[in-house]
Computed example of a mutant assay.
Amino acid sequence: MPEIRPLRADDLPVVADMFQRVLRKRRSPAPATLASYLQRLYLDSTDGSAGSPSLVHVAENGRVSGFVGVTSLPMRFGETRLNASICGSLMVDEDQRNDLSGARLLKAFLAGPQDISFSETASDVTANMWTTLRGTILPQHSLDWIKVIKPASFTIAGAKVRVPMARFAAPLARAADAGLRLRRSGEFSRWFGARDAAATLGRYTVADIDQDGFARLLGNFTSRFAVHPEWNDALLARIMADASAKQDFGAPFRCRVSSRTGAVIGAFMYFGRAGEIGHVLQVLALPGQAGAVIDCLIAHAATTGLAAVRGRTQPALLEAMLGRQIIFINVNSTVVHARDPELVRQFQAGNGFFNGLVGEHWSRIFGDRFD
């Protein structure tokens, strides 16, 4: 009989190989560094007594054929301390995808002792499984947003992911973007570039900060939400360290945004390199200040030379984004499941903080190299 059981250390070579094939789309053997990181992420750093452990599906022949990676996160709702479990990588070997092993893994995960469960990366198939098991999709958390700064370079940066030879067109793209910058009127200039954002930048101060500085702001800005994370110093330091190691995405930029009076109104963290698409991990803003912080982020990315920036929406940011010629797409959905329906309602109303550093995308699985 197939079984589902908690992940063990001796499963890691098989799970790492599955990661390599299924998620990373690599044919080469999984490097030992990947297995070591999975152990630290899913075994050494996760409290299995506070929520679901990571789980494996074992086929009838005794082979591990499926996996769901789980990290734990303490949260708070009013005076109530919550144990949250974040469902990361849910994967099944190709020859097992028709036997409901993925659904069994998800059902076992949701049956864990945690108060609330999340995922940021639910595919259409996985999201349907969540809703079948009484989970809820959070539409305002489920959109990727893209602000194009250099349209020609953006096109080449996107194309070379699938067609590596496209990188040779980068010099032509830079020349095209230089010419397009001369168009300073009309609808085209509204959609592309950072002119409007740069005008806002003059009214605020953007200053670089280190990991510790961003961590302190993170706690201050998230604690105003009804449901929010409650990290201890060691957990937050580990998350910030992992969040800063994403070699495929480029260098990390962490910035504080202040008004003319010196009051801190927000912060942002993103990764990028000139001519590429930057990856925004987190945007923080006081109520009513989201537009200014987003403008400062876009202007900063333009100064860095990025072709575009891309991130994940949050309800507190979405309204401000609507007037800034930002493109929205749905790639994966954010989903939530809780035994107390009031917790779900808080997230539906935008009163819960989740994504980026309060989610999955801080881990090195997203954007780092292991070879």
Results as ranks from 00 to 15, higher is better:
348 Q>N: 12
45 S>N: 14
293 V>H: 09
169 A>M: 13
201 L>V: 00
79 E>Q: 12
190 R>P: 00
116 I>V: 14
282 Q>K: 14
283 V>S: 08
254 R>P: 00
347 F>K: 02
118 F>M: 12
308 A>S: 06
164 P>L: 03
41 L>R: 07
314 Q>A: 11
341 P>E: 07
15 V>H: 10
344 V>S: 02
340 D>N: 12
188 F>C: 00
302 A>L: 01
290 A>D: 12
175 A>R: 13
92 V>N: 11
330 N>C: 10
276 E>T: 00
113 P>D: 08
277 I>N: 01
107 K>S: 10
233 D>K: 05
245 A>G: 04
281 L>P: 01
3 E>Y: 06
310 R>D: 04
40 R>Y: 10
59 A>T: 08
358 V>Y: 09
145 W>A: 04
249 F>R: 02
371 D>I: 06
335 V>M: 14
81 R>K: 14
63 R>L: 05
252 P>H: 04
364 R>Q: 15
120 E>W: 15
321 M>R: 04
252 P>T: 00
39 Q>E: 15
195 R>K: 09
279 H>A: 09
125 V>K: 14
172 L>W: 07
186 G>I: 00
294 I>W: 15
30 A>C: 07
263 A>Y: 01
345 R>E: 14
83 N>E: 11
353 F>K: 07
52 S>M: 01
296 C>E: 10
262 G>H: 01
226 A>M: 05
107 K>L: 02
360 E>D: 14
29 P>G: 09
209 I>W: 05
93 D>F: 01
159 A>W: 02
275 G>F: 00
176 A>N: 11
133 L>I: 10
335 V>F: 05
244 S>Y: 00
171 P>Y: 08
21 R>V: 04
160 K>A: 03
213 G>N: 09
90 L>M: 14
93 D>H: 09
8 R>E: 12
157 A>C: 01
109 F>R: 00
363 S>R: 03
291 G>R: 15
134 R>K: 13
94 E>F: 09
244 S>I: 04
139 P>C: 11
51 G>A: 12
164 P>R: 07
55 L>D: 03
248 D>I: 02
196 D>W: 04
132 T>I: 10
284 L>P: 00
114 Q>R: 07
297 L>T: 08
44 D>H: 12
206 V>L: 06
248 D>M: 09
159 A>E: 05
284 L>Y: 11
162 R>M: 07
1 M>D: 10
59 A>W: 02
244 S>G: 04
192 F>L: 00
199 A>I: 05
352 G>R: 11
62 G>Y: 01
347 F>N: 08
336 V>M: 09
147 K>G: 07
333 S>W: 06
301 A>I: 00
26 R>G: 11
151 P>G: 05
23 L>M: 15
264 V>I: 07
25 K>Q: 08
137 I>T: 15
258 S>M: 05
13 P>T: 11
27 R>K: 10
15 V>E: 08
69 G>K: 02
170 A>V: 03
328 F>Y: 12
361 H>Y: 14
36 S>D: 12
220 N>H: 08
33 T>K: 08
26 R>K: 15
